[in-house]
Write a protein that binds this DNA or RNA. Structure first.
Lengths: 107, 107
DNA sequence: AATACATATAATTATATATTAATGTTCATT
DNA sequence: AATGAACATTAATATATAATTATATGTATT
């Protein structure tokens, strides 16, 4: 049905974790284990989100030895680029995540 | 938390019905009863979606007599404008919806 | 003030999505 | 080929979102 594909794509972006992953990937590619550590969540959880992002072609997957690296694939997706522009860059993101992690650990 | 507001906004747009409503509003304002008929769904259902759109400031509400009219409010929201540009215009939307309605009625 | 119509809100049910735990697969190392 | 590490997939559960029904509010008309 009409508007369905667009809704699916936006739903994909309408998730805090996935936005954070995309924000991180703006800067460089990351392997799953990196993301697990940075996001401080379970490996299957991260994999699920990556799977969805990949299913809609927003990220690329590259196996290199033991590791699987993910990178952005948004050259042909203007409306996603616009969203990414609004996201904090990797450095900001990393320090925010760290801060957040520390706060959570203090509870 | 960071990325949360953005995720909320995108989640708002990640719904077929709401996208269709926004597509219709691109052309002109509509009252709730119009939308109920056009979308062929329950009035409370439409009201719920409009409430969410209004809560995030994407639409304006104006009461005129017995009727409440909704209109777009996206001048200051570039990333929403980009999405709206991708949506079919009102005429296309209306004929698609009509077609869809007829097909559904034939089942 | 009684009625009718347009809309909103509340409560319920149905459905979709996210999270977690358990298991399977692939690759590297020995 | 056996072990360990990185990742994927599956299944189970929890949570969030959507749709519906029932009910309430608000406005216009008589």
């Amino acid at each position: 049905m009409f508007n369905m594909e667009m809704a699916e794509k936006l739903k994909l972006l309408g998730d805090k974790t996935r936005l954070t992953i995309l924000g991180l990937l703006k800067d460089k590619e990351w392997c799953v284990c990196d993301l697990v550590e940075i996001l401080n969540m379970s490996q299957p959880g991260v994999s699920q989100h990556l799977r969805k992002l990949k299913a809609q072609g927003v990220v690329n997957e590259t196996r290199r030895g033991q590791w699987v690296y993910y990178s952005l694939n948004v050259e042909d997706k203007p409306y996603i680029q616009v969203v990414l522009n609004e996201l904090p860059d990797t450095q900001t993101l990393l320090s925010l995540l760290k801060k957040n992690y520390i706060e959570a650990a203090c509870d």
